[in-house]
Simulated assay, not measured.
Amino acid sequence: MARSNRENAAATRARILTSAQQLIRHRGLHCVTVDDVARAIGMTRGAVYGHFRSRAELLGALLSCAEADFATRLAPLARSGSGPGALERALAALLQGDDLARHVSLLAALLQHKCGDACELCPLRTRVLRAVGTLRATFTELLPAPSLAGLLVAHLWGLLSAHAMHLAPSGLSGCAAALAHLYQGHGVAPDAALSVSLSCRPDATFDPPLVRDTP
């Protein structure tokens, strides 16, 4: 009985997180409340608070999901080291599938957050910045010039953001080889970066972008 209750609680928690993630992706973080999340899955606000004591705790759980996704994708790199092909493997792992794009709206909102009087988001923003720093440090070990690491992180963010808005094709892992060649060969220039982004899947179809009503 206790096991069944735990499983039910875990399933409900997962439903709440999925609802929040989808609403944030379609409407933007600052336009989503706990009431919205509860309403989307037919729950009461009190029932949601039974799993998450505050909106900040709910958002923190979503951020933990994003952190876990990134960590899982980078784990093989830590085991295989920084030998030949390591950069391409890292990029392919990060861009494999479409799952990372689901986190973009949350991460973008936290990065753009400006602290107010009663701030619940600053600690979460700090976590995102720390993770970005870790990713940049990882790429620094794999690139011929440390200064390229920040540019590569920004390039990846642009690809994931475009994909999240349905402005880039699925299957971004097809970009890994081209990106690795571009950055390891020092051939980084705006026109080159654009050509890599557009040539990842030349046969892919594009969907219309999602409309957001964030401020």
Rank of each mutant, 00 (worst) to 15 (best):
S197M: 14
Q21K: 14
A86E: 06
W157T: 15
L87K: 04
G150T: 00
C122W: 09
V37A: 03
S197R: 11
L29N: 00
V32L: 08
V104S: 06
S199F: 06
M165L: 12
A92R: 05
P144D: 05
C200L: 01
V104K: 02
G97E: 07
A149G: 08
V153H: 11
M165Q: 14
R125I: 00
S54F: 10
A192P: 03
R89F: 06
R13G: 00
R79I: 10
A2T: 10
T138N: 04
A14Q: 15
F52G: 02
G46E: 12
L210A: 09
A177G: 09
D35V: 11
S170C: 03
P144S: 12
T72Q: 11
L111R: 13
T72V: 02
C200G: 07
T18G: 05
V34R: 01
R13S: 11
Q184N: 09
P76R: 08
G46A: 09
G174H: 14
D207R: 14
P76L: 03
L74K: 02
H113D: 08
I41Q: 13
A149P: 03
L182H: 04
D98I: 01
R45S: 12
V34H: 04
C122Q: 14
Q22D: 15
I16F: 05
A131V: 04
A168N: 06
R39H: 08
G42P: 03
A145C: 12
S105I: 10
A149Y: 06
R15D: 10
A14M: 12
A162S: 14
S19Y: 05
R45E: 13
